[in-house]
Write a protein that binds this DNA or RNA. Structure first.
Length: 647
RNA sequence: GCCGAUGUAGCUCAGCUGGUAGAGCAGCUGAUUUGUAAUCAGCUGGUCGGCGGUUCGAAUCCGUCCAUCGGCUCCA
């Protein structure tokens, strides 16, 4: 007998060789029907794999992320099996589960395949699922594994096996399909009741641009048809929150082919929104000791040779422009930091002056590959809420914390509750990608790691994601469809101060080198607005709404009174408009609702007589009549409350 | 840049297997003077993404380029 410890710390005894499934069955039939996999002393196991020694276990069902992961991983196998039947001879790359579903990378050889083939594949998957094929785990020697895929002619699997350690290789068999796989899998294919292939895309083998592009098919499965239906409804709803759609519908921004790809045009309403965000941050930064600066949009090529940007990005950026007579070369500014370094150098700096914090809403231009452009989240011209802090080495940590406070303040003010803090470090195996000495890199990386620890932040550490001049801490937020976007960023940099020979005079009357912190709490105004729109579905908080109120006269008879109301609002610095059109109230209300204007003020005979407005709240409805001055107070109070102490 | 899909009026979309375009909304004009999510009528508006080709004839078939969308790679 062996002792099995359950999550509630209760211990049960079972015969050796017991499986997760049987343990579940001994607890309840329902649990047994739903168990997909389990963890055994922390490792994820098949529900059908025998346990031979004392262990602590946790059973996973569809309600656990681990259960979903098992289900989707198994689904990838089943899809591969279906595809192998329908397209004999195809070769398989990798087929993992992902956050929502799974994919498989497949070399289809001479077959041509498109989303038109999805129905056929889906039907095959369901057909196989109903056969209740078992997932059979097989331990196999490296030699046999190589032999199998060598016979099959699948060079991708062979390559994968080369990297594995003999004695730890397992295959899984479903029906006639045998695949290299670590597992685990659901007990049998009948758990898969609903399947939807999502899309088809090219994906480079092992993520390497220089290697062959395989066909990646994304899919998702569910244990119930209803759950698939709900998922598809969720996707439809998410599309309504797409900032590109909202930007068009709410007249915030636009793109024009004539102006150029990836160059956003901010319409009056969008500019209003952006201005509010900028004013908000300026206020916060002023309190935190920042000074605003302004730099030109271009810079001499020598500036970027000094900074290293030229060597690193010269070939992949917009081509330089040149002066007609002297033939001097200039780059469109891709970064603000070199300019800010030159501002720092304008005069000698004393340790008493530090930290110097230079802030700028600096518009930069970067050549992004055409396939990368995406609404406002990925553009070729954008404005960073940039600042560079020049400080003494011993000030780095405090300054870093100060910046984190600003990021957190913003996320709080805008109700971004879920975000990921990512620490990006240098790739230790590829150091030539970066500038600067090992010593400086270590100092910078340690500073970030220490601050994260002191602040007890949950972080994801990703080696190889650092900027070429220094490590960074990024704040990532998801869009409506769950795609992650980097917003705020903080970067510690010991390198640019050296390249620009920045100095300060210390208390010892000697020259010292300052440290730079690059930071942008929003990241870029464009991307931030995009993510903000997706989060709010366009229902912006009152303090940010381009129009906070719209006055709707019942008929032309009350236009004069409506104008009076409008003037009072505008005089009180409430952003308001008036709908002068010769339309019925219902129509005006409908249009204002669709433009997501927070307050609609209906005025007619009653209101004129009483000096009031009838207030309707967007998304809520009629709030009844209020005196104009009361309404003004209400708006101001609410907007101030949203902003907290910053307002 | 690569793979796949898409591209019809300002917007949302219809147009079957080829016979030189249609709706609703928006806009304009007029009537209506309106009370909490669309008043009515008339009118305007498109070299069907661009360019080539096949055909007596192309929005429709083929090629190519451009753009958009979903991924991949990239992202100072």
């Amino acid at each position: 007998m062996i002792n099995i410890t359950l999550p509630d710390n209760s211990v049960r005894q079972y015969p050796e060789g017991i499986t997760g499934y049987k343990i579940a069955k001994s607890i309840s039939e329902g649990l047994a029907r739903n168990v997909l996999s389990l963890s055994v002393d922390g490792a994820i196991w098949d529900a059908t794999r025998p346990i031979n020694k004392d262990a602590r276990i946790k059973l996973f069902t569809w309600n656990d992320p681990e259960g979903k992961s098992t289900m989707w991983h198994s689904s990838a196998h089943l899809m591969a099996e279906a595809i192998e039947i329908l397209y004999p001879g195809v070769k398989f790359g990798i087929g993992p589960d992902i956050e929502s579903g799974f994919y498989y990378d497949i070399d289809f050889g001479n077959y041509s395949i498109s989303s038109d083939d999805f129905t056929k594949i889906e039907n095959k998957i369901l057909e196989l699922a109903r056969e209740k094929q078992q997932f059979i785990r097989k331990e196999i020697s490296k030699a046999d594994a190589l032999q199998y895929f060598s016979n099959k002619g699948d060079e991708y699997k062979l390559e994968l096996i080369q990297d594995l350690i003999d004695g730890q290789i397992t295959f899984y068999e479903t029906g006639k399909f045998l695949d290299l796989c670590r597992g685990p899998h659901v007990p049998d294919t009948s758990f898969i009741k609903a399947v939807k292939l999502i899309n088809i895309a090219g994906a480079y083998w092992r993520g390497d641009e220089k290697r062959k592009q395989l066909t990646r098919i994304y899919g998702i499965t569910f244990p119930k048809q209803k759950e698939l239906d709900d998922y598809l409804i969720f996707i439809e709803e998410a599309k309504k929150r797409d900032h590109r759609k909202l930007g068009k519908d709410l007249e915030l921004f636009a793109f024009s082919q004539k102006v150029g790809l990836g160059l956003p045009l901010w319409l009056p309403r969008g500019a209003q929104l952006r201005e509010r965000l900028e004013m908000f941050l300026k206020k916060v930064q002023k309190k935190a000791g920042y000074e605003q600066v302004i730099c030109p949009h271009i810079g001499n090529v020598e500036l970027y040779k000094t900074s290293g940007h030229y060597q690193k990005y010269g070939e992949s950026s917009f081509r330089p422009i040149s002066t007609p007579v002297e033939n001097e070369e200039f780059f469109l500014k891709p970064m603000n930091c070199p300019h800010h370094c030159e501002i720092y150098k304008v005069k000698p700096r004393s340790y008493k002056d530090l930290p110097v914090r230079l802030a700028e809403f600096g518009t930069v231009y970067r050549y992004e590959q055409s396939g990368e452009l995406h609404g406002l989240t990925r553009v070729r011209g954008f404005t960073q809420d940039d600042a560079h802090i020049f400080c003494m080495p011993e000030q780095v940590k405090d300054e870093f914390k100060g910046v984190m406070d600003i990021v957190m303040l913003i996320f709080k003010a805008l109700d971004f509750k879920e975000f990921i803090v990512q620490i990006s470090l240098r790739d230790p195996n590829n150091k030539e990608k970066y500038i600067g000495t090992d010593e400086n890199w270590e100092k910078a990386e340690n500073a970030i790691l220490e601050v994260a620890k002191e602040r007890e932040l949950t972080t994801v550490i990703v080696p190889g994601e650092a900027a070429f001049y220094g490590p960074k801490m990024d704040f990532m937020v998801k869009d409506a469809l769950g795609r992650k976007w980097q917003l705020g960023t903080i970067q510690v940099d010991y390198n640019l101060p050296e390249r620009f020979e920045l100095e300060y005079i210390g208390a010892d009357n000697q020259k010292h080198r300052p440290v730079m912190i690059h930071r942008a709490p929003f990241g870029s105004m464009e991307r931030f607005v995009a993510v903000l729109l997706e989060h709010t579905a366009g229902n912006l908080p009152l303090w940010l709404a381009p129009d906070q109120a719209i006055v709707l006269p019942i008929s032309e008879k009350y236009q004069d009174y409506a104008k009076k109301v409008l003037t009072l609002l505008n005089n009180s610095e409430i952003r308001a408009k008036m709908d002068e059109r010769n339309e019925k109230a219902g129509k005006k209300i409908r249009d204002a609702e669709m433009m997501k204007i927070p307050f609609m003020l209906i005025v007619g005979e009653r209101e004129e007589k009483e000096g009031s407005v009838s207030v309707r709240r967007h998304g809520i409805g009629d709030l009844g009549p209020q005196k104009i001055e009361d309404f003004i107070r209400l708006v101001k109070e609410e907007a101030n409350k949203e902003l907290g102490e910053i307002g």
